[in-house]
Design a protein around this nucleic acid. Structure first.
Length: 696
DNA sequence: TTTAGATGTCATGAC
DNA sequence: AAGTCATGACATCTA
């Protein structure tokens, strides 16, 4: 595999070097796969190989969806296909196809835009010519000069080295000096890759002033380039806007080259026919009504002024490109499978305004997907699992009408599936999480040990997975195209991306593919997230998913009698009743827990308040104690002073001072005060204490 | 990356 | 006995 990639990459580099020697700028970044893929190779996880279609084949029947051998199996199969593809000449055919689309006769080189129509007509007529061509060496027989590189700058990548003379290149460079070269070459890269971001970038580069500032032939070329760019895209509104802009620009240049083009130089193509061809583009047929409605109101489109005559010419280039793709494809009757039924089957459940509706869903597909899907008819459809369409329909239903994802998952669950992986596991690495939808359990089925948070993520992700599943189904289309019609798919990839000399497997992981797919995923997932409001609780999501006709608040706050009568009146499944009871129980308990915590918090706050109050009281008591102690000491001091003063005044019988150490003052019960010797006082005190002890 | 707080949920006991 | 409440314990989420 690495050798193969190395071979192709080196070949591409050599080709780029060759072109650079000629003077053609080549942007290899758009053609080379990511470095990681070059180094590590394309993992089977990224390979767009349908698992469904392979499981039932002799090759894939033995492989379980979870089998680790699946990776090697896909890898081996892809390698085999790529080796087979080496012997195919589809890559040179691709070059020739693109070459014919954008080439013009030598006599029309001056008029520029006429060549586009001519090439378109030749492609519509000669259909098989590209596929029958032998490679880049063939085109010079048809075209003696390259069309101006501005309209289809991809030509230098293809045929300059083989056909254009230095004079041609000089001519290109001279015209580039008018202000086209860089933008045109960048457009070449963008146009080839058909990337949205590239288109936007290019649109910004090409402002209205550019279109107005250019004059003469430059106007025609630039305008045509504008139209061509936009018609090559999927954004018709931008196309209409640019159409009006270019019309305004043309009104200022009355004698532009467009008007000078004789109608006879457009062989067999009228405006109406070209419009029909344009409207028949697979990319645009979904919005056919829109286009027609717009075209009725858009003067620039409906009125047959000379400028409008050139609009289909520019369009015809892309038509021719598309037709060349179809024509070069080995299958026939592409229009048969391109019936509205097929697309209708895809979008039967689409609802206007829904991101997954018909238009958007179809727009999510790259052009090649549509082409390949349309052109592969029975082989593709036979290999396509019919459930794919049902899945998308049901998933859309689940999104729009709150369809039970459980039921959806059950519907999707294959009888032989042990984990529900059978449906989604083959789509992409993300299918592992998506497939969990089949294991959704509610209520009592959550298990005693399983915390509901697990089931929550399962349930909610289940819805997301449902949408992701649909997105994977979209991817599955590409995968089916890849496997059942691998050659065609590779061919269309080459056509669409203009990634010449590049294997399909190298084309697929290109940044544009990643980008487009990431955009698809975003487009798919975002409405899901919006639909399932993340603010909803788990029970609310459950109730919504099970289409329980009551709100969670009603279920929880409803009185018991009313609750029981409600359960009996409404026809509810056991699952619904179980979920409703769980919702009520959890809701009650939730409120109880909240109240409990609130009470606990209140208790804690009250205790804290008590502690604070006690602290304050303690401080107060301490202050009071200190005050008492202070007053007590003060009283003692006063008593001592009084005692000393009394003894200083006392005299015994001989008139001598009384010694305070031998006598003491004793206060009787009647208030009389006696001077008593301390010995007697102590003996009386001892007697009193002994009496008290005896009494006690 | 860690951590504390908030929240939901379950189990259990009491009413 | 069923329903509800209260609460501890645990898991998860979030800032």
């Amino acid at each position: 595999m690495k050798d193969l990639k190395k071979y192709m990459t080196e070949g591409l580099l050599q080709f780029a070097i060759l072109l650079s020697l000629v003077g053609v700028r080549v942007d290899l970044d758009s053609y080379l796969p990511p470095i990681r893929e070059i180094i590590l190779g394309t993992s089977s996880a990224y390979s767009q190989i349908p698992f469904h279609s392979l499981r039932d084949t002799w090759e894939g029947s033995s492989l379980h969806p979870k089998s680790p051998d699946l990776d090697s199996f896909f890898t081996a199969r892809r390698l085999l296909d790529e080796v087979r593809a080496l012997g195919d000449t589809r890559v040179p055919r691709t070059e020739v196809s693109a070459w014919l689309v954008h080439t013009e006769p030598a006599d029309a080189a001056d008029t520029g835009t006429v060549s586009a129509l001519h090439s378109a007509g030749s492609n519509e007529e000669g259909t098989d010519t590209p596929s029958n061509s032998e490679g880049p060496s063939q085109p010079p027989a048809r075209s003696s000069s390259l069309q101006t590189s501005h309209a289809t700058p991809s030509q230098p990548h293809i045929g300059t080295g083989a056909t254009s003379t230095p004079g041609d290149y000089t001519k290109e460079k001279q015209e580039d000096k008018l202000g086209y070269s860089e933008e045109s070459y960048s457009y070449s890269y963008l146009h080839n890759d058909n990337g949205k971001a590239g288109l936007e970038e290019e649109v910004t580069q090409h402002s209205e002033e550019d279109a107005l500032s250019n004059t003469g032939a430059g106007d025609s070329i630039d305008i045509r380039a504008e139209i061509d760019r936009n018609t090559s895209s999927l954004f018709f509104e931008e196309f209409i806007q640019l159409l009006a802009q270019t019309e305004n620009a043309l009104e200022g240049t009355s004698e532009n080259s467009f008007q000078s083009v004789p109608p006879s130089s457009r062989p067999g193509n009228t405006v109406g026919e070209l419009w029909q061809d344009f409207l028949s583009l697979p990319d645009l047929n979904i919005t056919l009504e829109d286009i027609q409605s717009i075209s009725n109101t858009n003067h620039a489109v409906s009125t047959p002024v000379p400028f409008n005559v050139h609009l289909p010419e520019a369009i015809s280039q892309n038509i021719s490109l598309q037709e060349a793709m179809f024509a070069s494809s080995p299958t026939n009757g592409s229009s048969e499978d391109h019936t509205p039924e097929n697309l209708l089957q895809l979008n039967s459940s689409a609802i206007p305004g829904d991101p997954l509706s018909a238009t958007n869903l179809t727009n999510l597909f790259p052009t090649t997907d549509n082409n390949s899907r349309n052109s592969t008819n029975q082989d593709l459809l036979s290999g396509l699992d019919e459930n794919v369409f049902d899945e998308i329909n049901l998933m859309s239903l689940a999104l729009e009408e709150g369809f039970d994802p459980l039921e959806v998952s059950q519907l999707f669950e294959e009888p032989d599936s042990d984990s529900g992986l059978s449906l989604n596991s083959s789509h992409s690495p993300t299918s592992a999480s998506i497939s969990d939808t089949s294991s959704i359990t509610f209520g009592e089925e959550e298990g005693a040990a399983g915390y509901s948070s697990d089931s929550e993520s399962t349930s909610y992700d289940g819805l997301e997975g449902a949408v992701g599943g649909s997105g994977s189904e979209i991817n599955k289309f590409g995968q089916l195209d890849d496997s059942n019609n691998y050659d065609e798919m590779s061919l269309h990839n080459v056509y669409h991306n203009h990634t010449y000399n590049q294997l399909p497997t190298q084309v697929e992981p290109s940044p544009e593919h990643h980008y487009s797919w990431s955009m698809k995923s975003n487009k798919i997932r975002s409405p899901c997230v919006n639909a399932m409001d993340k603010s909803l609780s788990r029970d609310e999501r459950r109730a919504k998913s099970l289409r329980i006709p009551f709100t969670v608040d009603e279920i929880v706050s409803m009185p018991v009698e009313m609750f029981n009568s409600m359960l009996s009146k409404h026809y509810l499944t056991e699952t619904q009743v179980s979920v409703i009871r769980d919702i009520r129980r959890r809701g009650k308990n939730k409120v109880a827990a909240q109240n409990c915590r609130k009470r606990k918090l209140d208790v804690i706050l009250n205790l804290e308040d008590d502690v604070n109050q006690l602290k304050v009281q303690k401080e107060k008591l301490l202050k009071e104690q200190a005050q008492c102690s202070k007053s007590m000491s003060h009283m003692k001091q006063k008593l001592n002073d009084l005692y000393r003063d009394v003894f200083n005044r006392l005299r015994d019988e001989q008139g001598r001072p009384v010694n305070p150490n031998h006598y003491t003052l004793h206060c009787n019960s009647d208030g009389s005060i006696m001077v008593v010797p301390r010995r007697l006082f102590k003996s009386e005190q001892n007697k009193d204490t002994q009496k008290d002890k005896k009494q006690k």
